[in-house]
Nucleic acid binder design. Sequence first.
DNA 1: CAGCATCCTGTCAGATACTG
DNA 2: CAGTATCTGACAGGATGCTG
Lengths: 120, 120
Amino acid sequence: MAVSFAQIRATRDDVFTENCPTRVVLDHVMSKWGVLVLLALTDGTLRWGELRRTVDGISEKMLASTLRTLESDGIVARTAYPEVPPRVEYALTPRGEQLMVRMLPLMEWIADEADDIVGR
Amino acid sequence: MAVSFAQIRATRDDVFTENCPTRVVLDHVMSKWGVLVLLALTDGTLRWGELRRTVDGISEKMLASTLRTLESDGIVARTAYPEVPPRVEYALTPRGEQLMVRMLPLMEWIADEADDIVGR
DNA sequence: CAGCATCCTGTCAGATACTG
DNA sequence: CAGTATCTGACAGGATGCTG
């Protein structure tokens, strides 16, 4: 295995402690809707309505709160154009891209194995 | 970027659809306690009590249900020894190790960036 | 020691309606 | 179009007590 957990723990010993920053980021980024929104943005900028349609089943409320969280974490960038009708675009920031580079192999594996795991 | 989301989507077009296997596995594996338990098991077998102490803040109920889910997904293996007092050990299965190989780089990045993201 | 059964509660998330 | 506001129910999750 390329990197062991002990290695992570060596540089940061509070990964398992409640209320440590790692857990907070973990909850934002690995949340049910968080991953799906990030995944949707991986291939490029999307508008609010496109996101809503792409992430099947997400409510407006959850989309809004997910986007706000990811934006305040500096993972997603929001750009509003002063037009009528309004146009707002969402994209990954450089930090968000760094994140997705690491998350995509994981997603790819899950997508491949899912049928076997759930058992169909 | 090594792998794009479009690439995943090409082999599996239902990633964004509700109630598809991918979403189920995603919910199990990326759940709040799921990741932490998996992380704890990455460096080797642990007993129930060790897991409980390692994953700070987890309740017995959540530990039990998390382990049952991961076991039924074939990601974690449970071994009970017929002794008094009872001894039960949990370890990653080969499938679980495959998963963690892909999750560790992500965890490492999150652990590194967490302080910056949360802003301390 | 390693759990399960039960009860209880707070939060999250869905539905609906409204607005700049 | 891109949201916000409010209400409500469901369920995640905690506390407690018990058992093989």
